[in-house]
């Protein structure tokens, strides 16, 4: 059976079991998000997709839609909070967009633009995160990891491999790979893995491919995030 809820005053139909973000994107409404991807089980960790449901904040990628809900999304208050979250992600890792080969294809960068983030605001943490260049075809630059766990879910649920996982706790949470050496080269990861395609930022990089498309002509250079729903929800 189909029911409806309202999103910023607009009536949105939904099917039983659908989350708010699923119903919204089906109806062509963009809700900023980073850890959500339509093909995977939601994680609910980045909190970018937070909306107000009947006055209470909640993540729209994990909250099921229910009939008659009153949802706020594109408000100055929520966007300011989302902007602060993107700033937090920028200072937590080492994101130097001008020298990053994902610039223009990066969902974090695009979302920050979308939300009007002008500066990182907070003091940088400058964590030390060595890169893993062991694999012949893929480089892992952990400096940019936002811990969204998309690669974890893709490798586990689609590739059936468990190449990636999160370890550590709190601010020391970090990505690990499935090898005693800790090197990607010693795992059964391949370029064909779904996990090779899902990173929303610039961690999982195909070698010798970086600037094949020049900066300025890339995905979000052409169509800013949120302007086209496809850009917002598809993988890279």
């Amino acid at each position: 059976m189909s029911h409806t809820f309202t999103l910023d005053g607009k009536t949105i139909p939904f099917e039983d079991g659908q989350t708010i973000i699923q119903a919204a994107s089906k109806a062509g409404v963009f809700i900023p998000h980073l850890c959500y991807h339509p093909e995977f089980k939601p994680h609910g960790s980045c909190k970018l997709c937070t909306v107000k449901v009947n006055g209470r904040q909640t993540a729209s990628c994990t909250m099921r839609a229910s009939a008659g809900m009153v949802v706020e999304n594109n408000t100055e208050e929520l966007n300011a909070e989302r902007r602060a979250l993107t700033q937090m992600l920028f200072v937590e890792g080492n994101h130097f967009c001008p020298s990053c080969e994902t610039s223009g294809n990066c969902q974090l960068q695009a979302t920050a633009y979308h939300l009007g983030m002008m500066s990182p605001h907070y003091d940088h943490f400058f964590p030390s995160r060595p890169v893993d260049a062991s694999h012949p075809e893929v480089l892992l630059d952990f400096n940019r990891c936002i811990l969204c766990s998309l690669c974890v879910r893709a490798s586990r649920d689609v590739d059936g491999k468990n190449v990636f996982a999160l370890s550590g706790r709190g601010i020391k949470t970090h990505l690990i790979v499935n090898a005693r050496s800790g090197n990607l080269a010693d795992t059964n990861f391949t370029l064909k893995d779904k996990a090779a395609q899902v990173c929303p930022v610039g961690v999982i990089l195909v070698k010798r491919n970086g600037f094949a498309v020049p900066i300025g002509e890339r995905r979000y250079d052409n169509v800013p995030i949120g302007d086209s729903l496809e850009t917002a929800t598809e993988g890279r």
């Binding site: 980045c46 909190k47 979250l85 937590e92 811990l147 601010i171």
Partner: peptide, 12 residues
């Protein structure tokens, strides 16, 4: 625990 952005980064 480090799961969500606001608390992981915000507490630091």
């Amino acid at each position: 625990c480090g799961f969500c952005t606001p608390c992981r980064v915000g507490t630091s």
